[in-house]
Structure formats: C-alpha cells, structure tokens
Simulated scan of single mutants.
Amino acid sequence: MFFNMFRGYSQADIQLLERVVFAEAQGEPYQGQVAVAAVILNRLKSPDFPNTISQIIYQPSAFESVTNGSIWWKQPNESAKRAVQDAINGSDPSGGALFFFNPRTATSPWVKNELVTIKTIGKHAFAIKKKKPPQRNGYTNNSYTYGNFNNGYNNGYNYDNYNNGYNNNGWQWERLPD
C-alpha cells in the first residue's frame, strides 16, 4: 500500500474521484490519469465550480462517465488510485487546467469556442476557458460610464451622488480613469 494523505477529503470523495479517473482515463498514460484527477481538484479551488468533489463530479454533463454510468461498471485499478493520491499530494501535470476532453471525439461547439488547450497528454487535451475582453454596457462621456438601462437614460437622477452611486435600477456608476 502507498502513503495516503487525504488532506481533508473523505473516503467517499477519494473513492468517487478514483472511479472517475479510472472511467475517464483508462488506457491513458499515468500522467494523464493524474492530470484528470488534478482537473477535478483544480475545479474545487475555482469559484466557477461547486465546492465539493461530489458536486463537481455529479454536475450535469460534466463527465461522460457519469452521464453514461460507466463510473459504476468496474472497480478502479491501482494506477487510478495512485493517480488520485498523487493529485491530492499536489501533482498537477495538467498545468492548472479546469477541463479535459478528447479532441478526436469532442463534438460540442462549446469546447471549440470557449476553451483553449494548454497541454496534451495521451489522447486528452487539458484546457482552460478563453479569456474574454472586458465589455461595457452603456456609453461613455469621457468621465463616467452610464449603465445599460432604459436605452441609456438615467430616469432624471443625478449621475454622481444619487443613492450612494446607485440609480433606481441598481446600476452602479463607474468612474473611468483619466
């Protein structure tokens, strides 16, 4: 048996993670298995995902093996168990990825339009979301940005100090840099 450092994860969390790694990365190189586990742990640290391992794994359509039930077909092998432990102990061959997919079989336009691959291990691409440029709702007069409400009209209220910077629609005025 190998050294276990659960770092606050329950035995149920560990077993569920092992099942997903085995189902999703069976036949992949060992580093690819560790990377799959790391993606789930990276999601745990991200504010964009649920805050428990089981919520991340059972998020609708997040993992094909959960959607098709294959996480329950076989017990995880020792390689998947070691890969989970390595990821828990800090190994992240994915490079901080929050997503993984097989580029040859992925059919979702979302994968092609929203993700950027940062690493490839075996048949899996490991990815993060594309960064989008900041967008402003409304228009600018060189001093303030006016929110996108009522076609840009402020309903007759003072732009500067009405209700501590909020108008009656809940928009906050933003001072632009000079």
Results as ranks from 00 to 15, higher is better:
151 N>D: 12
138 G>L: 01
148 N>F: 06
157 Y>S: 00
161 N>H: 07
169 N>V: 14
135 Q>L: 11
135 Q>W: 02
153 Y>C: 01
167 N>G: 08
147 G>P: 06
162 Y>L: 08
135 Q>T: 11
147 G>Y: 02
159 Y>F: 10
147 G>Q: 00
163 N>L: 02
154 N>L: 12
163 N>G: 02
168 N>I: 15
170 G>V: 13
138 G>V: 01
147 G>L: 00
150 N>Q: 05
151 N>L: 12
159 Y>L: 15
145 T>K: 02
170 G>I: 04
160 D>L: 15
155 N>L: 00
170 G>P: 09
150 N>K: 07
140 T>N: 12
153 Y>M: 08
168 N>C: 07
138 G>Y: 03
158 N>H: 11
143 S>P: 00
146 Y>M: 03
159 Y>W: 14
151 N>G: 02
135 Q>V: 12
135 Q>N: 01
147 G>A: 12
133 P>N: 09
148 N>Q: 13
144 Y>G: 02
165 G>L: 00
154 N>M: 05
150 N>R: 06
148 N>P: 05
140 T>E: 11
157 Y>L: 14
165 G>M: 03
162 Y>D: 03
143 S>I: 14
140 T>A: 08
161 N>T: 10
143 S>R: 14
165 G>F: 05
159 Y>P: 11
149 F>Y: 10
156 G>C: 03
168 N>A: 05
160 D>M: 12
137 N>Y: 09
142 N>S: 13
135 Q>K: 10
168 N>K: 12
148 N>K: 11
137 N>A: 13
164 N>Y: 15
169 N>A: 13
142 N>H: 09
163 N>F: 09
134 P>L: 10
152 G>Y: 05
157 Y>T: 11
161 N>D: 14
133 P>F: 01
158 N>S: 15
157 Y>H: 06
140 T>S: 15
155 N>I: 00
146 Y>T: 06
166 Y>G: 03
169 N>H: 10
166 Y>M: 09
163 N>M: 07
159 Y>H: 12
160 D>R: 15
152 G>Q: 01
168 N>M: 11
142 N>Q: 11
133 P>Q: 07
168 N>S: 14
147 G>F: 00
164 N>C: 02
170 G>R: 02
133 P>C: 10
164 N>G: 09
145 T>R: 11
134 P>V: 13
163 N>Y: 08
144 Y>V: 11
167 N>S: 07
165 G>N: 04
138 G>A: 02
138 G>M: 05
143 S>N: 12
153 Y>D: 06
164 N>P: 01
158 N>T: 06
153 Y>S: 15
157 Y>V: 15
167 N>E: 06
138 G>H: 02
162 Y>A: 04
147 G>N: 03
167 N>F: 08
150 N>G: 02
155 N>P: 01
156 G>R: 01
160 D>E: 15
143 S>D: 05
161 N>K: 07
147 G>W: 02
142 N>A: 14
151 N>C: 08
166 Y>P: 06
161 N>S: 13
168 N>G: 08
151 N>I: 01
158 N>R: 12
145 T>P: 00
133 P>L: 09
154 N>W: 04
137 N>G: 13
163 N>C: 11
164 N>R: 09
143 S>V: 15
170 G>A: 09
139 Y>V: 04
146 Y>H: 12
157 Y>D: 07
